[in-house]
Write a protein that binds this DNA or RNA. Structure first.
Length: 1013
RNA sequence: CGCGGUGUAGCUCAAUCAGGCUAGAGCAUUCGCUUGAUAAGCGAACGAUGAAAGGUUCAACUCCUUCCACCGCGACCA
């Protein structure tokens, strides 16, 4: 025994000590750590560390390189980072190549605005340069912001849809579509300014007041009226249409009716008129038809106009019947379309402002329920016309004049022709009524003239025409089956399948998360029309097609496309604009049709969705092909739900054309960020939460934790209160880690670890809890259930650790001799907990987990441990938890809850303050007595009281239903030990340490011996 | 208007798929304890007519129907 003076009690307490601060100071810590990661090339280290491990690729959907990132963009990227980091820690080689969508209208418009009037005289190459600069600038800022979020990836070399290699690959992929026979050139209506003689994008039109002639016109039915209804047999039947653009009537090829509406045949003497029954009264009144009858007919009306209804029938009955054009010698086909409404707003392509039309609907209905359809002059008309196989007929030239084949009006400008057509119809007796109609009509934003809808030639990718058979080797799927098995529904195996069929088949093999994504995708695919890939713009990948100057033949085949692509590869797609056609074509190329040698270039560019849809094929080639060989599917795509019709869709198309497979094995969608009320966020509403502000005020870590806290499958609310909760949660996690780290001061795992079978039982209980958490969290990461990760870990920290385990072991950690095996036992567990927490939290709390990692005493003096937690793997779960042990402890903790409640009562009654001032008497039931007896000496520590006494029941049979009964709390016996604060009747028995209890006397002896040794 | 999704305490989540004790946690709030995790820790209390209305059933948060709200996509919407 030491002869020195007694130790100063306070100094013999092992208080926590760590450099891991209570305050995170994320604002400074995060950038500092990012810098460190950059300097050590952490991402490169991870790649090397996982070299040869199973590959797992999350393919990044490219954000649009226009504006700065918003909270939704941040969410998307953070969720992706969770995936990449967690797969990495699950042992996969999970490279992350970010990308940016650089082409497209929004950038071009932005540049237009910036260039102003200058643009008109600028060559395309210069405009493209300006666009390129803008995109480069935006993506640079976005990259900086993404990196700030703690996202690791190949930031120094992201894929850019405007890079030479990408543009070249995009062109080649378009060549694949051509090669397989999916591409055709057709016409489609677009906004057209007849003054500027150019197509306009939607964003380039503005709505202004305009007066149009509103006309009701009758089209004679050319079939047998009895087909419609017996009552009409032998009558002269006419279908009434309404339009505000009489000039489109020469292009009329059909009449659309709604299959669900009821139509009426109305008697007007010699003639019978067909209109929607609901509109019949209004139409008849307008046209001055009908007589005043005393009897009420159906439907009765309020204006005293009564007409007789000869028959009524659903629109569906009219399908594919035929009328004659009102004055031209050609048929007008009756078609069924859901777009037909009773408001009249679908009646004309001119009725572009639906809201306006609906307002009108409220005051006075227009239209007849039969829609004049000119496929060359309206969007719906076009769609339904395609569906019914009508020609996309547009007899109007660039200047808005009728072409020579238009009888009576050839050469007339359409707006000038309007009154003439009205007059013409009146003379012919086909016009029932006309009036002036005030409405909002689209005008060119540049020249302010009214625009028209006009079909112009466009490139399409066919959804329904079968692909031509490939000459190449049949592709095998993972089961070794010939891929063309998806043609099994076709008897002739030489016939390929259409893109739509292939897509519908392929999506069944994709894992959709959530599962309803499959239905969603299927609906999208079923309904989507042919893909119009033409854009009349300059900022994009040019459609690599040529036109023979001699015979006007469009020339586009794989060979030519690849030749052009090779040029793009070297010089970027700017070459299309910088070079002449002959320099873009192979030498001595001649028109396959006429042998002509002079060609002009296609001026359309590809839809940007084609660009981004090409991303996986392009990135595989550029980033992975060399190392991993043959193309393979990406493991997962992860985007917002808006991408079903967007990127998921276009990527599927491109991948099917290129590889006959979906580009993804799994598709995960996330919801949208909404405000506290669940409302969508809009800058204009002022309810948007800016990521940079969250970062500035709270740190990226908080934003990341928010992403992990909420179930992203649904809409995710962000608001100050929510972020505050998250910040509190962060503190809790941090403090939990800090407690563990602080109590590991002086603990060297290799030297001081205690084997599990030598541990105290509660320590083994804690390990069992940890083991379960590890298993659950690993599973949650695998299933992309990040909110489950967060809630499991968080609950583990608060309930199992902070409220129970840590609270209980404090006594042991603080008051036992540092090297006492019981203390080492607890420390061993704390070490494992801290280690596991760091690893399990790492994908979410990228910075903090790494900080925990650094403050962890490392096995073997730290040499073996990776220099960052992000190089480590998740802890393994043994999954062989001692269930009996856990059951026993579940019981003990239940008893503890009851004791705590009793302590609270005693506290309220001022019997005790601190729980250590208490002594607890328990009379256990027969059910639990045995268990409690076993833990007799441990109960005081479990309850954190000074004494526990177990007592017998007098009359046990009566209380078999009770588990615990009669818990009594009284003041602890003896004096408070100055060192451990427990009460003991033995305080004062030591001469050397008179203020101390028997446990502390022993601890102090150990400490003094240790010091002497 | 069409397609899809979601509604459980003030907040974030469980249990819902295969209906079954008194709908569970944590946070927040209030109160108390502690002052050896201390701009921390522990406990207790309070807090949900399960969006609403019907229906099926012995039994419904769970299944069915309707409706409302919100979100996304598509619509001749911005």
């Amino acid at each position: 025994m030491s002869t020195e003076t007694p130790l100063e009690l306070k100094k013999t307490i092992n208080l926590p000590k760590t450099n891991f601060g209570q305050k995170a100071n994320l604002g400074q810590m995060e950038p500092a750590r990012l810098k460190k990661w950059t300097e050590m090339n952490l991402y490169g280290m991870i790649r090397r560390a996982r070299e040869g491990a199973p590959l797992f690729i999350l393919h990044d959907g490219p954000p649009y390189a226009n504006a700065d990132i918003h909270i939704g963009t941040a969410l998307n990227k953070i969720l992706k980072d969770f995936v990449v980091k967690s797969r990495t820690m699950l042992g996969f080689d999970a490279p992350y190549v970010p990308g940016y969508d650089c082409h497209g209208l929004p950038i071009e418009l932005y540049v237009d605005k910036k260039l102003g009037a200058k643009k008109a005289n600028m060559p395309a190459v210069s405009i493209r340069r300006a666009c390129r600069e803008h995109a480069a600038d935006a993506l640079k800022r976005q990259t900086r912001d993404f990196q700030r979020l703690g996202i690791l990836g190949l930031w120094e070399n992201p894929y850019l849809t405007m890079s030479n290699s990408y543009e070249a690959e995009t062109a080649r992929l378009f060549g694949r579509f051509i090669e397989r026979g999916y591409v055709y050139k057709g016409a489609r209506p677009v906004y057209w300014c007849i003054h500027d003689q150019t197509a306009l994008a939607e964003a380039e039109v503005e709505y202004r007041e305009h007066t149009s002639p509103s006309v009701y016109v009758k089209f004679p039915f050319s079939g047998d009226p009895a087909q419609i209804d017996e009552a009409l047999a032998g009558r002269k039947v006419f279908f009434l249409i309404w339009t505000t653009t009489p000039w489109t009537l020469p292009a009329n090829l059909g009449i659309a009716v709604n299959p669900n509406f009821e139509y009426a045949a109305i008697d007007n003497g010699d003639e019978v008129y067909i209109v929607a029954i609901e509109l019949a009264t209004d139409v008849m009144r307008k046209c001055g038809i009908g007589k005043v009858f005393p009897q009420a007919f159906d439907p009765p009306n309020d204006a005293g106009v009564v007409h007789s209804v000869l028959a009524r029938f659903p629109g569906s009955k009219l399908d594919r019947l035929e009328c004659r054009h009102a004055w031209l010698d050609r048929p007008s086909l009756l078609m069924l379309g859901e777009h037909v409404t009773l408001g009249g707003e679908a009646d004309a392509e001119t009725e572009l402002d639906v809201k306006e039309a609906r307002d009108k609907k409220a005051t006075g209905k227009a239209g007849t329920g039969l829609v004049h359809t000119a496929p060359g002059h309206g969007h719906d008309d076009f769609v339904i016309g395609k569906q019914y196989g009508l020609e996309i007929y547009c007899p109007v030239d660039n200047a808005g004049r009728f072409t020579p084949d238009v009888e009576y009006f050839a050469g007339e400008g359409v707006f000038e022709a309007n009154p003439k057509i009205v007059e013409f119809m009146r003379e012919r007796g086909v016009l029932l009524f006309s009036e002036n109609y005030e409405h909002r009509y689209p005008h060119c934003w540049r020249c302010k003239n009214p625009v028209i809808f006009r079909a112009t030639p466009q490139w399409f990718i066919a959804m329904d025409s079968a692909a031509t058979k490939e000459a190449s080797q049949p592709e095998l799927d993972e089961d070794g089956r010939v891929r063309s098995n998806y043609t099994e529904n076709f008897t002739d195996s030489e016939v390929g399948v259409s893109l739509r069929e292939a897509a519908l088949h392929e999506i069944e093999r994709v894992e959709w998360i959530p599962a309803w994504g499959f239905d969603r995708m299927r609906n999208m695919l079923k309904g989507r029309p042919d893909w119009c890939v033409s854009r009349q713009r300059v900022w994009g990948v040019p459609i690599p097609a040529f036109y023979c100057n001699a015979c006007n033949e469009a020339v586009a085949d794989k060979g030519i496309v690849n030749h052009v692509a090779d040029i793009f590869e070297k010089e970027s797609a700017d070459a299309w604009y910088a070079k002449d056609a002959r320099d873009l074509l192979p030498e001595n190329f001649k028109c396959p049709k006429c042998g002509g040698e002079e060609f002009s270039k296609e001026t359309d560019i590809l839809d940007v969705w084609f660009d981004s849809g090409s991303s996986w094929a392009a990135t595989w080639k550029e980033y992975f092909a060399e190392k991993f060989g043959e193309w393979q599917q990406a493991d997962v795509y992860m985007e917002g739900g808006d991408q079903y019709r967007g990127w998921f869709n276009s990527s599927l198309m491109v991948s099917l054309a290129a590889h006959d497979r979906a580009p993804y094995k799994a598709v995960v969608t996330h919801g949208w960020t909404v405000d506290a009320q669940g409302k969508a966020m809009h800058k204009s509403l002022g309810n948007a939460v800016a990521p940079e502000e969250v970062i500035k005020e709270s740190g990226a870590e908080i934003l990341r934790l928010w992403c992990a806290s909420t179930d992203y499958h649904e809409d995710m609310r962000v608001a100050p209160e929510i972020l505050q909760r998250i910040t509190d949660g962060y503190r809790k996690l941090r403090n939990t880690a800090r407690f563990a780290l602080g109590n590991l001061h002086g603990f060297e795992p290799a030297r001081d670890s205690v084997a599990e079978d030598e541990m105290l039982e509660i320590d083994r209980w804690a390990l069992a809890e940890l083991d379960e958490v590890v298993a659950l969290v690993r599973a949650a990461y695998k299933a992309y259930e990040f909110h489950a990760v967060f809630h499991r870990l968080y609950n583990f920290c608060t309930v199992a650790l902070s409220a129970r385990y840590f609270d209980i072991i404090k006594d042991r950690l603080y008051t036992f001799a540092p090297r006492n095996i019981a203390r080492r036992s607890a420390q061993t567990v704390l070490y494992k907990i801290a280690d596991a927490l760091a690893r399990l939290l790492a994908p979410v709390l990228v910075f903090t987990a790494d900080e925990i990692w650094e403050n962890l005493p490392q096995v073997g003096g730290g040499d073996e441990a990776p220099s960052s937690v992000h190089l480590a793997t998740f802890p393994e779960s043994t999954n062989v938890q001692d269930m009996e042990l856990r059951t026993r402890w579940a019981l003990l903790f239940r008893l503890r809850d009851e004791v705590l409640a009793k302590l609270e009562e005693a506290r309220a009654a001022k019997v005790i303050g601190s729980s250590l001032e208490a002594k607890v008497r328990i009379r256990p039931s027969a059910l639990v007595r045995k268990t409690l007896e076993k833990y007799k000496d441990d109960l005081r520590y479990i309850f954190i009281v000074s004494q526990v006494e177990l007592r017998e029941w007098m009359d046990e049979p009566e209380v078999h239903s009770l588990i615990f009964e009669d818990i009594q709390v009284e003041r602890a016996e003896g004096e408070k030990c100055e060192r451990c604060w427990n009460y003991s009747v033995h305080v004062g028995e030591s001469e050397r340490y008179p203020a101390v209890c028997e446990r502390c006397v022993e601890a102090l002896r150990e400490i003094e011996e240790g010091a002497a040794a």
